[in-house]
Amino acid sequence: MNQDKAGRRVLSDLSVSLPKGGFSTLIGPSGAGKTSLLRLLNRLDDPASGTVCFMGRPIADAPVRALRREVGFVFQTPSMFPGTVAQNLLIVPTLGGQAAADPPSVGEALRQVELDTDFEHRIAAELSGGEKQRVALARALMTRPRILLLDEPTAALDPEVAEQLMLTLRRLREDSGLTIVMVTHRLSEARLASTYAVMLEAGRLVEAGPADRFFSTPATARTREFITAGRQGSEPA
């Protein structure tokens, strides 16, 4: 598929499959088109040309709001709704026109993201960056999605908090069987959590494959160069 943004081509002739039940990371330098690709997966944007398929069916054929409840999205900067953490979570089942079938309880959603249940009474806007990101994650889980898209969820967090969040995400996938697709700048995170990795550059696919092989024996010189630069500490913080 192809995608344009403000008159500029941001994805060119891209064709990629992401494994069901996997933890895929999208990596690449700034401007590679990682976020543009992620936004196509739950139709926050539509491609300029081409098709995105979910379980073999074009997502454009499904009602968009129902699709978004199956394909959750967590943004780089968590945007808290007014009120408490519980209110942030409980609003989700009311957004679907009719209540989503069997939404998780607030306590269950908070446990999934490894937040103490006492958090439900806290004012969401007053939480720390890491806590807000976990609440945003819990909120996305309130629709019981089958896929979770994460756009650099740790970009605004310090490395220690970021690593804890990565471990939470890894356990979440292992426990619930969620398919996760995450954009990240941090190669260390991609190595820690992912089972599948995709490298993009200038809107084109450079390489994609199982994470073990991708990071140990990359198939392309460009991926090798990017990973080596990351190991030497030049990866963006």
């Binding site: 978004r68 999205f73 709704f81």
Partner: peptide, 20 residues
């Protein structure tokens, strides 16, 4: 914009997302 898209990503209608 950020909050509106956060609502949309949860399956909200444009009406719900732009209520505030």
């Amino acid at each position: 914009r950020a909050q509106i898209e956060a609502y949309l990503a949860l399956g909200a209608s444009p009406q719900q997302a732009s209520a505030e």
